[in-house]
Computed example of a mutant assay.
Amino acid sequence: MDFNLSQILSTSMILFAIIDILGSIPIVINLRQKAGHIESEKATIVATILMIIFLFAGESLLKVIGLDVASFAIAGSIVIFILAMEMILGLTLFKEEAPETVSIVPLAFPLIAGAGTMTTLLSLKTEYATQNILIGIVINMIFVYFVLKNTIRLENFFGITGLNVLRKAFGIILLAIAIKLFRNNTGL
């Protein structure tokens, strides 16, 4: 196994931007108010397991349905592009309804380990070593757990304006990632 600090850092930053747990704090607070309680441990563990399973089995699943990783990466780059535009422009194109048990759905999936995250994992797999991606996942899930446990404190610390600035900054990063993924997988 060849651990590459540069790949780990890059993977961690890309996943950090796509998961956007800081930008999701208002959503998490809203879900907590509706449900009364969020199980941070359960949400983090389920999201981690989903990401790891998709990292290893996602490519096989794609082959079963006749797709290659490059095609999925291009489709994913478009999804990431749309998510980035939502964040930058303050639009809501993807709408989810919050069920009673919010720790698994919609928090673990699709908020944390959603389509954008899954697509990003497969796209990262085309460029980085699997063990470095796994470390990036673990680093992000530790951070996600910390944020879920301290959502109210973070909301008070950043304020509404601070959270909006973070969301837009990560939106620009995601936009650049989407363009890079598209370029790398189309040969442009």
Rank of each mutant, 00 (worst) to 15 (best):
I8V: 13
I8W: 12
L9P: 03
S10E: 11
T11S: 15
S12H: 12
M13Q: 14
I14L: 14
F16D: 08
F16K: 12
A17L: 11
A17Q: 05
I18H: 06
P26V: 04
P26K: 07
I27H: 00
N30K: 14
K34H: 08
H37D: 04
I38R: 01
E41F: 13
I52F: 09
I53L: 14
L62Y: 02
A70E: 09
S71H: 05
A73G: 08
A75I: 02
I78D: 11
I78T: 05
V79E: 08
I80C: 06
F81Q: 12
F81N: 13
G90R: 04
L91W: 14
F94S: 09
K95S: 13
A98L: 02
I104T: 09
V105G: 01
P106Y: 09
L107P: 05
P110D: 06
A113G: 11
T117L: 04
T120C: 01
L122W: 12
K125W: 07
T126A: 14
T130P: 07
Q131G: 03
I133M: 12
G136P: 09
V138H: 02
V138Q: 04
M141T: 05
V144A: 03
V147I: 11
K149Y: 06
N150I: 04
L154N: 03
E155H: 06
F157T: 06
F158Y: 14
I160A: 10
I160C: 01
T161G: 06
G162Q: 15
L166C: 07
G171Q: 13
A176M: 15
I177D: 00
I179Q: 11
R183I: 11
N185P: 15
